[in-house]
Design a protein around this nucleic acid. Structure first.
Lengths: 108, 108
DNA sequence: CACAGTGCTTCGGAATTCGAAGCACTCATC
DNA sequence: GATGAGTGCTTCGAATTCCGAAGCACTGTG
C-alpha cells in the first residue's frame, strides 16, 4: 500500500516514465515533464533515490536503478490501458448527467 | 500521459484499488482509505466518474465501470512489484550516502 | 420521537506545489 | 581571461491542494 502512496504524488509516475527511456540531466528531465517546478523535481528525485528507484550517474545525470526499471516495466499495462481509455473517451461524449455537476472544476 | 497525471493525485490509485474488491458506500470507502478527508474523497469520486472509471449503483454505493476494472487490473503488476520493492528495502539498510541529506524530510 | 447511519457540504488552517529568480560551477568561444 | 551559455540546485512568496472537524438532509430502526 505504501507504493500506492509513493506513486500517488504529483509527477512521480511521470518522472519514472521519462527516466525509463534514457538517463536525463536535471534541466532536461524538467523540460520532459512539461516544465514542472524545479523545487518539486528536486524533492521527487531525492525521494526516488531514498526509495532506491533512481540514482545519479558519474556525469551527474539521473537514471533508474534495476529496481527502478522493474517498477517502470510494471507500469507498462497502465500505459496500454490509458490508450484504450483515451479511445473510449473520444468515442463517448460527456453525458448530461456528468456535466450536471455545478461550478465544480475538475480538469483532466 | 494524461493518465499518469490523473493517477498522480493523492488517493486516486488507492480508491481504484479499494473499489476493485467490491462496491463500497461513501463512508465505508473512506474508512478503507485510512480515513482520508471526506472533501477530497468526494472530489476524487466525481473525477473518477467524469473519467468513466467509477459509477454509482442504484443503492448509492460506488463501483468501478468495466473500464475501471480494466484500469485496476492494469495496476496488478505495480502491486506485484511493490512486494519485491518492500523486500528489497527490508534487506538493504539505508546507505550513509542517503542519510547524508541534511534536514530535508521525505517520509515514505 | 429519539437515535444511529448514510451521502455530502462548508470552511479555516495546514501542507504541498508552483514559478520566477538567483547562486555556484563547468565548458566553449572570443 | 572575460564573456556567454548551460548545468544542478536553492530560496521564497504566492497559488493551490489537502486535511479534518463540524454540520445538514435524509433514511431507517427501535
Amino acid at each position: 500500500m505504501a507504493a500506492l502512496d509513493l506513486f500517488g504524488r504529483r509527477w512521480t509516475l511521470r518522472i519514472i516514465w521519462e527516466l525509463g527511456n534514457e538517463p536525463l540531466g536535471f534541466r532536461l528531465l524538467q523540460r520532459r515533464c512539461d516544465g514542472m517546478s524545479s523545487s518539486v523535481l528536486q524533492q521527487r528525485l531525492t525521494e526516488l533515490q531514498e526509495a532506491r528507484l533512481a540514482e545519479v550517474l558519474h556525469d551527474g545525470s539521473y537514471t533508474l536503478t534495476p529496481l527502478g526499471h522493474d517498477a517502470r516495466e510494471s507500469l507498462g499495462p497502465v500505459i496500454e490501458w490509458s490508450r484504450r481509455w483515451a479511445a473510449e473517451l473520444a468515442d463517448a461524449p460527456p453525458t448530461a448527467a456528468e456535466d450536471a455537476g455545478d461550478g465544480q472544476r475538475n480538469r483532466l
